[in-house]
Design a protein around this nucleic acid. Structure first.
Lengths: 342, 342
DNA sequence: CTGAAAGCGCTTACAG
DNA sequence: CTGAAAGCGCTTACAG
């Protein structure tokens, strides 16, 4: 009883479990159980502990729990961008999937940089995460080494892995690029340009799909491709429209690697007096909200980003629990949204 | 020496500091210092420890460090949304400000919900954060109690606190709302509508500013106000345009509480054949990227969201270090962006 | 500059 | 169902 102190603990200045236990008149570990595994404690003691927790304003120390249990309840999520609506939707899906469990989600923004990804991973690995959600399949050697050494379960999001041992949830970026290009070809376009920015692995795969379709149709022409490493923005789309029309003035359709670019290209056409789609068809990728509302509305590829996050988190949780997942490679597909702009 | 094991630690399955120390032939605490305070260790020993770290692939256990040092190096950030570009910009500013330091940033998305904010805060408080960055000034009683009991330094973002003891970084939402409304009045508009969604505290303050300006000009009319709790989206803007024109058919200008709504309203005007700004002026708030590019380009309020994050994090860091900040209330202002739509 | 000891606040087997 | 003991992997004063 005399262990009840001032209500302030020691080093951390916080109430400890031992103080709660003393206050409730039980052993520390009974208090621990009353909190973590309430079913294993008699209702009477449980109630006393709960009351002590409330009276003392006890806040568990997560570091102590993690250290003692060798279990962090942390899940790390690495995304390349937070300003891209695609990844914020992925995050929303992850949050929803993990909401019931007591996981702490560590969100890292790699900003499309290998160095940043390495840095974040090395820091987050210090938290001994239960699992990791990664964006994309291609990572630097150091990242792969750290990941392998950590023995932490990983699920890759956005695209599908070739080997089934690697857990992945997404859709074929290449097939989506191919599908959109075929759509434009089937509409009768013959001079179809491709505008790619950021040049992350997903954009590169979409470009591959574009090239495949163009090759098959005998329509390939390097002048029709504009690829730049800058981030995808509306402003860049406007600029690249000018670049591609300079490079291929007879261009009759443009496949933009994502919607921001397509929006910028369309706004720029409006300023230049180019009729979309009559003179120039323009389509995008990802189906951002504005695409359905702009005038003209934008033809694009709808992507299941929320579901990617949700299913990836669900899959990861299954693996963390030691259960065997029904599938290790979950293809969520994509949808061609045919609208006015192409 | 015989302490060097298989390279695998015990419970956590990881290499420990003790193993690193044994490998380097030094005491555990010398190894600890070589890593945390390298200046306090002789170059020779430091090199041996560093080599041991590399050879063994040592990853520090953050939970153990936090527990022993009673210092988490965690900073909690609570934002109401991740799909709103305003808050992702705030986060980018925070990241940049804290990049050099070894902080782990815990990002929580409260989804504009008090209950969710309480839940996240109670979980994050378990990590014993060094500091907290909060969005807005108004919080539930439980949140205020938890915050007070925690004794953790807090900086509020987005708006300015009335009491100087409360650290805050942002700008006056009310003044911004007033400024935009005055602008419309000065342009000769007399039937100025206000469309508000989400109805978080910032929107409410902007509405207050709108009302003040309208009152002063003797132009107030409740039929000119549409307030709904739904999240701000382009789709909602399109819908609310219809609602306000039904409520006040003679409306000659609309102040949308943010850009998404303004975009939707403008797209809807285009579909209905209403000329913007000739028949109806429309303006927004926040200056999202599309606002500068749309046709017509959108008159709006430019807000210093990136800088809010950056300065708030910088202020918090100052306080955490025990230093006295130059100012406790940092007004970053706003900018009226007069463009084509109003 | 270097080190042996104690302790951070929990949980995990192990008994009873 | 309940509890005394040991230990998780670090760091913090305190000596030398």
């Amino acid at each position: 009883m005399s262990k009840i102190q001032t209500g302030k603990g020691r080093a951390s200045g916080r109430v400890t479990l031992a103080e709660v236990a003393a206050h409730a008149g039980v052993a520390t570990m009974t208090a621990s159980r009353a909190i973590s595994q309430p079913d294993m404690v008699s209702p009477a003691l449980r109630a006393r502990v709960e009351q002590a927790v409330a009276e003392l304003g006890y806040v568990p120390n997560r570091a102590a729990r993690a250290l003692a249990s060798a279990q962090s309840n942390v899940i790390v999520v690495l995304v390349p961008s937070l300003s891209n609506a695609v990844f914020t939707a992925v995050l929303a899906g992850i949050q929803d999937a993990l909401d019931a469990d007591n996981y702490q989600i560590l969100i890292g923004n790699t900003r499309y940089s290998d160095a940043e990804e390495e840095k974040l991973l090395s820091i987050y690995l210090q938290s001994n995460p239960d699992g990791i959600l990664l964006s994309g399949l291609s990572h630097s050697k150091r990242v792969r080494q750290m990941l392998a050494a950590s023995h932490v379960p990983i699920v890759s999001m956005m695209d599908l892995a070739s080997e089934p041992e690697q857990l992945s949830v997404g859709f074929s970026q290449q097939r989506a690029g191919y599908t959109m290009t075929r759509y434009l070809i089937d509409k009768g376009h013959t001079r179809i340009g491709f505008i790619g920015a950021q040049l992350d692995e997903r954009v590169l795969k979409r470009a591959e799909g574009y090239r495949k379709a163009m090759d098959e149709a005998g329509l390939s022409d390097p002048r029709l491709e504009i690829m730049v490493g800058d981030p995808s923005t509306i402003a860049l789309g406007a600029e690249l429209l000018g670049r591609i029309l300079a490079s291929a003035p007879d261009c009759d359709a443009i496949f933009c690697c994502n919607d921001d670019l397509a929006h910028g290209a369309i706004y720029q056409c409006q300023r230049r007096g180019i009729a979309v789609p009559e003179q120039l068809a323009i389509c995008g990728f990802n189906d951002l909200p504005a695409s359905a509302w702009m005038n003209p509305s934008v033809t694009t590829i709808g992507t299941p980003r929320y579901r990617i996050g949700f299913e990836a988190a669900t899959l990861l949780r299954t693996v963390i629990r030691g259960e065997t997942p029904a599938a290790t490679r979950i293809d969520l597909g994509f949808t061609l949204m045919a609208r006015e702009s192409a």
